[in-house]
Amino acid sequence: MPQSLSLSAAAGPKRPSEWLRALFRRNEIALLLSLVALIVFFSLASDSFLTTRNITNVLGQASLAMVAGIGVGVLVISGEIDVSIGSLAGAVGIPLVVIMNMTGSLELGIAGALLLALCVGVVNGFLAAYIGINSLIVTLGSMFVIRGAVYLYTGQKAIPDDLMLESFYQIGNGRLFGAISYPALVAIVLLSAFIYLMRHRPFGRKLYAVGGNPEVARLAGYDVKRVKFIAFVICSLLAGISGILLSSRLGSAVHVAGLGFEFQVVAAVVLGGVSLAGGIGSLFGVALGVLILSFLANGLGMLNIATEWQLVTTGLIIIAAVAFDELKRRAK
């Protein structure tokens, strides 16, 4: 049994001394150490890395993947997957900007964007959880359909924000007290909320149970389909929020926004120790996975290493991380 992977799944009821011992068996520690090593390395290698400006910049970048990653993490823990989040994150920009242009109201725009995300989540969740179609196929399908619909609607052109609303600019680029960017704030709030949910709410535990062993979950009286359905909706809503922030940073609804985003996010989630088989992993791990990939990308950029290396190293790190987990599991 993957003790090292037990994470928050076993973190619940523990005495303090055991908690400490368990902590060191967990792979969050390895991830955390990797992150620290990465930061130390890049700050030694480049003067401009460890500056407030750069760090806030990285955190801002990481926030978008973090928000979407929380959703994907929740869904993968429940034993399903969603690869349509990139298309969705791109697509929500359209109702956002179009409604804003029409009504002049950012709030209505955001409501429209979230409504779209909700609809996508409901459709994905209905087809996958209730009808029982493999979630990879369902979301591969919606990935095509959403992106195609965006192209169809926009004619493959970006839709500009005509009103240049300051508030629209602020949500993606502004800072609270000039220090912490709003996207980072959103990410931190959502992360805390969902970590709390996954550890301390019965529903969070149901997500683990349903992903870990659906049959046992059913015997324990859980409505497995409903739990998975809700996970799909959560995942889409968070992808939608991520898309709203993205759209604000881009300053318009860009038809190609979020291309390939799903792969980045899935990669970070897996790197963070969430098992694709379901039932294993923690959102804290997901957050670390996102941060590692973001700092790596940024650091390599700082060292003037071609940005393409980021993709290469990311790919290699994912293979190494998953293979390492598997080896540890087999060693036991």
């Binding site: 009821p13 523990k14 301390h200 019965p202 015997l219």
Partner: peptide
């Protein structure tokens, strides 16, 4: 019929988690 990733104590209560006033386990 137990969730192998959960602790013994949690498995005892998965059918009905005891919650406090705000619904936390």
């Amino acid at each position: 019929a137990l969730i192998s990733e959960f602790t013994v104590a949690e498995n005892i209560f998965i059918e009905e988690y005891p919650v406090n006033g705000v619904g936390s386990i």
